[in-house]
């Protein structure tokens, strides 16, 4: 067989080569490439509508139909939906070992962060059925570190001087705003305010020393990275979320308080042993 020149290879890969000018073997390769580059099939575009809806929902754009949770769950696979339900039922903590905020934090101090999609010792990596959705949760919502929560709650009570205070101190503070968001999203158990009740529970159940971080610091999720390549020109495209902070699943007294996540029936809580 004649040696294949670099030019021939490049022409082949670009789809510019003429079959008549190629050896029979390369003509077959060229033909395969042509088929591989065939126009889109209806099957490949079948999910367009739900994909667009999910895109709008995930991208924080207003969507014309349905709630965001409904749209996203439609778009994700049934397997991922099951994982989502598991996370929702446990407030996220039982499955991910993490406390999930309802808003993506802009500058939450990540004392202990871990990337669910890549961290080998994450419990998520042991289960293919949960890791997919968990990765989405980690990217989509951000997480507040357990250490940060302890500090924020301590500061909260120091500021309010009351365990039943209902207002969040320093409402202009991003950290306290995040604390309120996490509390609202994860704690609706008692008659006390969500922040006070949540912080009481945090201080009671997570004294210093029971929180274990993975020590990974801020890390970029591979999934959302636009800057997968060095020197990429789309510098902003890699707006990857900070990894989630985790509370060690092996920490003692890890009973999760009754939780109620938006969009899910109250009372759908469970204990994490």
């Amino acid at each position: 067989m004649d040696p294949i020149s670099q030019e021939t290879v490049e022409e082949l890969l670009r789809g510019n080569s003429s079959p008549q000018a190629l050896s029979p073997e390369l003509a077959k390769v060229a033909h395969l490439m042509q088929i591989a580059q065939a126009p889109a099939t209806s099957n490949e575009l079948a999910g367009s509508h739900s994909a667009v809806e999910a895109f709008m929902a995930a991208g924080q754009y207003p969507i014309s139909t349905g709630g965001k949770e409904k749209v996203l769950s439609k778009f994700l696979s049934a397997k991922a939906a099951i994982a989502a339900a598991a996370i929702a039922l446990t407030g996220g903590a039982a499955v991910t070992g993490a406390l999930v905020s309802s808003n993506r934090p802009a500058s939450i101090p990540n004392v202990a962060t871990v990337n669910p999609s890549t961290q080998g010792d994450s419990p998520l990596t042991n289960s293919g059925s949960t890791s997919t959705l968990a990765t989405v949760v980690g990217e989509n919502q951000g997480m507040v570190s357990g250490h940060s929560l302890f500090g924020l709650c301590t500061a909260y009570f120091a500021t309010t001087k009351s365990s039943t205070g209902s207002s969040v101190p320093s409402s202009g503070s991003t950290a306290f705003t995040q604390l309120a968001s996490v509390a609202a999203a994860n704690y609706t158990a008692t008659n006390t305010s969500s922040v006070a009740g949540f912080c009481t529970w945090v201080l009671k159940n997570y004294p210093p020393g029971t929180l274990s971080g993975h020590g990974k610091g801020s890390n970029a999720s591979s999934a959302g990275s636009a800057n997968a390549s060095q020197g990429s020109s789309h510098s902003g495209g890699g707006a990857t979320p900070q990894g989630g902070a985790t509370i060690s699943s092996s920490a003692p007294n890890m009973s999760v308080p009754p939780v109620s996540l938006p969009g899910h029936a109250s009372g759908a809580s469970s204990k994490h042993s």
Binding site: A54, H234, A239
Partner: peptide
């Protein structure tokens, strides 16, 4: 499934894409 995740990642980050 993975393609769906890719599109969701794109949705979340397209605002900062350049």
């Amino acid at each position: 499934d993975i393609a769906s995740e890719v599109w969701l990642a794109v949705a979340r980050n397209i605002g900062t894409f350049q």
